[in-house]
Simulated scan of single mutants.
Amino acid sequence: MYILKRIATMFLTVWVIATLTFVIMKFIPGDPFASDADVLPEEVLQNMRAKYNLDKPVPLQYVLYLKNLIMFDLGPSIQSETRDVNTLIADGFPASALLGVQAITVALILGLALGILAALYHNRVIDYLSMLVAIIGISVPSFILAPLLIKFFAVELRWLPVASWGTWKHIVLPSFALALSPLAVIARFMRSSMIEVMNQNYIKTAVAKGLPTFAIVIKHGIRNAILPVVTFIGPLFAALITGTFVIEKIFAIPGIGKYFVDSIFNRDYPVILGTTVFFSVILIFTLFVIDISYRLIDPRIKLSSKGD
């Protein structure tokens, strides 16, 4: 029952987001062809507006938009004459997903490791160094870190390429630029949660029984301390695999974020609406999977709501 309610809520949320995005687009003055008004004849502009249903009443545009959305048809791109929105997303999502998966992998491995070490060596040198890395990661935005990485590793040392895409070398710098901030947050969450867990009575009992420290940390410590981190990973994972606009722009990555930024500047309504709905679906589905994963991590958590 809980899962069915969540699925219904997911569809309702997607509809609300799609509707709000459509309304916001209609409140923006002008249309995508306003810049061509002084160049093209009025008849041509009217034909172009008719092609994209912009000449129809707004309520009818909304109905047609929802109808196409239900059919998984996000419509044609106004700026691209050869590709529709579905094709743009299909072309850009693999690059964004690859970049996001690598970034979240780096953030998880290093963040969890730093957090665990900081908790196990609380108020020692390792703890201070780990939290220093976390503070730097939180304080330095990715759009500042990215040019610094390019300057040092690409321009000065010439170790890694930039402004191109195709090999594993091209993904290293953008992945680390994306990973540092979530790495820092994961490390802080894991440290705080791990310190609290390691002070629980069941941990002290395990120590008193003479269980190996490694077994205590892995079996009892990390498993119970990781739940707050899992909560954070949900929206983070969705955000990263759908692309980070600034990083993709800086490193010239042909991801979905690039198309979204370009669509805003070009006022390409179908691309803006389509990518927004796509981002929303990814985020909502990821949060749903994270909720289900709670039960796998901690069997004490029940997948039910009040009254079920």
Score class of each variant (00 low, 15 high):
192 S>G: 12
277 V>A: 02
196 E>K: 07
210 G>E: 00
277 V>Q: 01
157 L>H: 09
58 V>T: 13
179 A>L: 04
283 L>Q: 05
159 W>R: 10
301 I>E: 07
278 F>E: 08
262 D>V: 12
183 L>Y: 02
211 L>W: 08
55 D>N: 13
173 L>M: 03
17 I>M: 09
202 Y>E: 06
184 A>L: 11
76 P>V: 09
194 M>F: 11
141 P>S: 11
94 P>Y: 11
221 G>A: 11
193 S>N: 09
250 I>D: 07
300 R>G: 06
257 G>Y: 09
158 R>A: 15
58 V>Y: 15
21 T>P: 00
259 Y>Q: 08
304 S>P: 10
170 H>C: 10
246 V>A: 15
137 G>A: 10
114 L>I: 13
64 L>G: 06
163 A>L: 14
9 T>I: 14
257 G>T: 09
6 R>A: 01
111 G>V: 00
50 A>N: 07
40 L>Y: 08
174 P>D: 04
62 Y>V: 07
304 S>H: 13
80 S>V: 06
175 S>K: 01
118 A>Y: 02
303 L>W: 06
96 S>M: 06
197 V>R: 10
9 T>Q: 14
43 E>Q: 09
133 V>E: 10
173 L>W: 04
78 I>T: 04
134 A>R: 04
207 V>N: 14
18 A>C: 13
210 G>V: 11
15 W>Y: 11
214 F>K: 04
267 R>A: 14
275 T>Q: 06
260 F>G: 07
166 G>T: 01
238 A>Q: 12
188 R>S: 06
140 V>P: 05
241 I>Y: 01
10 M>C: 11
138 I>N: 05
6 R>Q: 08
100 G>W: 00
125 V>L: 09
188 R>V: 12
